[in-house]
């Protein structure tokens, strides 16, 4: 049964990090904004949650607070871009830097241990103790449940008037302006919403691994970008409405990417080769479809 372990871990990690991938993908595809802030809002969410949780604030309150903190980081990125006409990448980078210092300040250190504190996974983890080989079946099911609820809410929100305005502002700013839609305001709102999701991802990971660390955001951006690319390459895009496709692709891509990482860890690759192995895997998946879609660059530029 040992071969199932990497699949199990990949599924688990993929579902935990899917929210961060969603944040990046929604910003990228619906708002046309390559949002680097994810790397900052992810640890910021974990930091806010860890501090509140440790001081005894109930989970139902500390999780929304953490998401709000991430949302504020996203709003700041949007604000810097629309108000000061700062380059999209630069606004993201600036906010990552701010979020790093802010997380350190909030935590009063670089790391907070959450071992022994309650988490949303408590009851499912108890169920799993009887499962053979430490399979995280129930945790994965719970996470799938979270994602289903979350996706339904997101799809519902995108179908409201506000959601429609947001999508128009993102996909065709000139047309949106002609309709009298406030494009900058919608961009700020959209980035706030996506970064709430990134912060939630940070919270879930912190709860699962038992600590929040200021360094835990490092590499999330690259991971999310890779996962998004894989997901979009794996799924047939014509069968779903575009925003539903973006959602599903983010989750599928996140899981696929983490399964690959788990296999690489399982095989016991030397640390020097681990990153190369994951890079090769991403390239392999991308190559599966490059021949059909033509130039990859044209896709990125769209």
């Amino acid at each position: 049964m040992s071969w199932i372990v990497p699949l199990d871990i990949g599924l688990l990690m993929g579902l935990l990090l899917a929210w961060a991938v969603l944040a990046l993908a929604l910003g990228f595809r619906l708002l046309d904004f390559p949002d680097l802030t994810v790397e900052g809002s992810f640890p910021l969410g974990a930091a806010v949650f860890a501090v509140l949780h440790r001081t005894g604030v109930p989970m139902l309150l500390s999780i929304p607070c953490a998401m709000l903190a991430g949302g504020l980081a996203g709003a700041l990125t949007g604000f810097l871009h629309v108000r000061f006409r700062l380059n999209k990448f630069l606004s993201g980078i600036i906010v990552i830097a701010i979020a790093y210092s802010l997380s350190l300040r909030i935590m009063g250190g670089s790391n907070i241990g959450l071992l022994g504190l309650s988490s949303v996974f408590d009851c499912v983890e108890r169920l799993e103790e009887s499962l053979p080989g430490g399979v995280h079946l129930w945790t994965a099911l719970l996470l799938v449940g979270f994602l289903l609820v979350g996706s339904t809410l997101i799809l519902g929100a995108l179908a409201t008037r506000t959601g429609l305005r947001l999508r128009v502002a993102g996909s065709n700013p000139n047309y949106a302006r002609a309709l009298g839609i406030n494009v900058p305001a919608n961009l700020v709102l959209g980035l706030a919403a996506t970064n709430c999701l990134a912060a939630l991802s940070g919270v879930l990971l912190a709860m699962h691994q038992g600590f929040a660390d200021v360094g835990m955001g490092q590499g999330v951006l690259i991971l999310a970008l890779a996962a998004m690319t894989i997901g979009e390459r794996l799924l047939p895009e014509k069968r779903l409405p575009f925003h539903a496709f973006v959602l599903v692709a983010a989750v599928v891509g996140s899981v696929a990417y983490q399964v690959v990482v788990a296999y690489a860890v399982r095989v016991g690759l030397a640390p020097t080769d681990l990153k190369l192995a994951t890079a090769v895997m991403v390239l392999a998946v991308v190559a599966l479809r490059v021949s059909r879609d033509g130039n990859l660059l044209s896709e990125v530029q769209q």
């Binding site: 040992s2 372990v5 990497p6 199990d8 871990i9 688990l12 990690m13 990090l17 790391n111 080989g133 430490g134 399979v135 995280h136 990971l205 699962h208 691994q209 600590f211 660390d213 360094g215 835990m216 490092q218 590499g219 999330v220 991971l223 983490q258 990482v261 788990a262 860890v265 399982r266 030397a270 640390p271 020097t272 681990l274 990153k275």
Partner: peptide, 30 residues
């Protein structure tokens, strides 16, 4: 070895726990 990536810590911890080892030695705080 997590190669310095903190998010990989949890992945590795889960993997080693599933291996059924007699003792797990964990080096560094995270």
């Amino acid at each position: 070895n997590a190669n310095g990536q903190v998010q990989l810590a949890s992945n590795i911890a889960n993997e080693l726990s599933a291996q059924g080892s007699d003792v797990i030695v964990a080096i560094t705080t995270p």
